[in-house]
Design a protein around this nucleic acid. Structure first.
Length: 151
DNA sequence: TAGGCCATCTGGTCCT
DNA sequence: AGGACCAGATGGCCTA
């Protein structure tokens, strides 16, 4: 545990409040303020913990909907965000492509064969712009081109 | 053992 | 005033 140093205590708050009870009251009031500040800090810590837990829950939910082919290890937060970005871009591209085809049947027959993870799993194609990103190089997942549809 | 990832604490800032 | 959000610091755990 670190010190109970607090900006609230160090600030000029004390001088704003006139203590009418003499020196004994000053000590009492001061310790009460310390106590109050400590309580507020603990409450803020608990809120922050809950907030971060909520954030982590959201990351876990995102990990479940994002592709993780060939990745036995849990994606880090950064990797999860990158994968989600690539995944959304890929889906967007697919939707845009769908608009180019007149009938739904035509579109489905075009894409069904590409929707198997295996078709991405063994991707060994040339690297592109993400080469400059060490994270992107490290995990297989979120090269946007992994999601590219064969034209 | 170094490096990566993460949880937690903390103080600052902004908003209601 | 109090809560939400953010970023920096710190320490623990895990893996190559």
């Amino acid at each position: 545990m670190k010190t109970c140093k607090s900006s609230h205590l160090d600030s000029g708050i004390e001088s704003d409040i006139q203590c009418r009870g003499g020196p004994a009251c000053v000590v009492k009031c001061s310790s009460e303020r310390m106590e109050s500040a400590a309580k507020r800090r603990l409450a803020a810590n608990a809120r922050e913990r809950r907030r971060m837990q909520g954030l982590n829950t959201a990351f876990d939910r995102l990990r479940k909907v994002v592709p993780q082919w060939g990745q036995d290890k849990k994606l880090s937060k950064y990797e999860t965000l990158q994968m989600a970005l690539s995944y959304i871009m890929a889906l967007t591209r697919i939707l845009a492509e769908a608009e180019r085809y007149s009938t739904e049947r035509e579109w489905i027959s075009l894409h069904c064969e590409h929707f198997h993870p295996e078709s991405y799993h063994h991707y060994t194609g040339p690297k592109m712009a993400t080469d400059s990103d060490p994270y992107a190089q490290r995990i297989f997942g979120y090269h946007p081109e992994h999601f590219q549809i064969a034209n």
